[in-house]
Write a protein that binds this DNA or RNA. Structure first.
Lengths: 252, 252
DNA sequence: GGCCATCAAACTGCATGCAATTGCGGCGCC
DNA sequence: GGCGCCGCAATTGCATGCAGTTTGATGGCC
């Protein structure tokens, strides 16, 4: 066990971060769909810890935007609205632009092979489930961010990439990952060549096309969370409690 | 009390978020300097809650990068290295660019007056302590972000702005806030006029100059955390425990 | 048949208690 | 006099317990 140790930032202790990692992964692989319930008891039992720890983990994930926490209510996997999804992609484009700008022409040989290896893995995973492909594609971007050795950038890129994953599972149709893989290869090549302008454009285009493939339209019906659809109509309500529908059947 | 209610994102419950807000404010006003210790007991006692809650709050702040948490050790206010500070400003420039791009020409009259009122407050605070000026200047940027009504953007801009505050208290000399105030006014004017290119340039320049005023040089001596200075030399160490100096007198 | 009140189970909010680890002051040794 | 070692106080890591809230189901009433 390489004991990568918990990176300085966040990831408080041990058990908590283990649970966080597990849940994060489950979420981005869509084992846990948006809206899925996450009761503290069940989590604690599943991971062999007390509710206290499970609760703490949920708090962390909420801070990352992967989980929604409302007072006295069961935590659920976040269900970003379409607008939030769009915003997340906008932010992501900016942040990853920063990443490639820092990296262009500065990669070592071993870093380049590491990236190529990763894309090879993505390639091999094409036969498998979509979930794994999506996870690997996301991890490619995180890997890139890590190479900047800027902890802040790593954290933000990771978070926002995870959020985009969530989005994908909400709004995206089964999508072809091939072009994404080719785009990854192109980005590596341009990074190695040190062509900053080119790599910026590639990354921008890559993320933009991912976003567009995912977020073709507000898809009000498939957005699947009734409350989001109704949200605009609730603006009139002045009270804190946003909307109070007579028992609306939520998922689950 | 306007009962602003806890915004959907993060900020779990009540007591926890109260503590978070209090600590955040104390940190950005430099009542708590970087490196200051934050024992769970003391926090709990001070805020009239149990350690459990104080601990949870520290976890949230750690997720935001304001607090550093290490296993079995007392939490301390984060002490960003010079490089991290620089990175934070880079990210901030990108994010706030996004903000003003979204806002240019889209502000309502009342929003514009709200912004002007805020800058007036900044102006009035010029006679007071530096701490308040810094806080108000930071809050101006957060106010701007809030007007995008993009929760994600608000969260990221807030976080990174707070981090930059931390930085300022670490590396900055007593600085003049006047030009910053004028720059704020200029940004509002350009936003109102809807001149996107102009406002982008203004914001970029504004943040860049703030960064440069603060981060003139690595200032190795004044960076004041011996451990950061030694960090590059510790890369050789393979163990998890990064560095083990014979009792080095840390602050406090 | 549909609607509302009532109640129990489920779940969260929080405090407290115990075990484990760390930090630090004093002691002995070189 | 300085350096390293040991033991105690301080502090964290975590589980459990109790109180308050929500959920949703059952039964009575219109």
């Amino acid at each position: 066990m390489p004991a990568r140790a918990t990176s300085k930032t966040s990831e408080s202790s041990d058990k908590v971060s283990v649970i966080c990692r597990a849940l994060r992964r489950a979420i981005i692989e869509q084992a846990l769909e948006p809206g899925a319930k996450l009761p503290e008891d069940s989590l604690g039992e599943r991971f062999g810890v007390s509710r206290t720890i499970a609760r703490h983990a949920l708090g962390q994930l909420a801070a990352e935007g992967l989980v929604e926490l409302r007072r006295n209510r069961i935590a659920v996997v976040a269900t970003p609205s379409w607008k939030e999804a769009r915003d997340a992609f906008d932010i992501r484009i900016q942040l990853e632009g920063l990443v490639v700008r820092q990296l262009a022409g500065k990669l070592t040989g071993s870093q380049i092979s590491e990236l190529n290896d990763h894309v090879d893995a993505e390639d091999r995973a094409r036969g498998g489930t979509d979930a794994v492909s999506i996870r690997l594609a996301t991890e490619f971007h995180i890997l890139l961010a890590q190479m900047t050795s800027s902890p802040i950038l790593v954290r933000y890129v990771s978070e926002v990439a995870y959020r985009c994953c969530l989005t994908l599972s909400l709004y995206s149709r089964p999508h072809s990952t091939e072009c994404a893989i080719n785009e990854h290869r192109a980005i590596i090549a341009a990074l190695a060549k040190g062509d900053e302008a080119k790599v910026m454009e590639l990354m921008h285009h890559h993320l933009d096309s991912v976003a567009n493939r995912a977020l073709v339209a507000p898809t009000p019906q498939r957005g699947r969370d009734l409350l989001d659809i109704l949200a605009p109509y609730a603006d009139e309500v002045t009270s804190d409690r946003v909307v109070k529908l007579p028992k609306v059947a939520r998922r689950g």
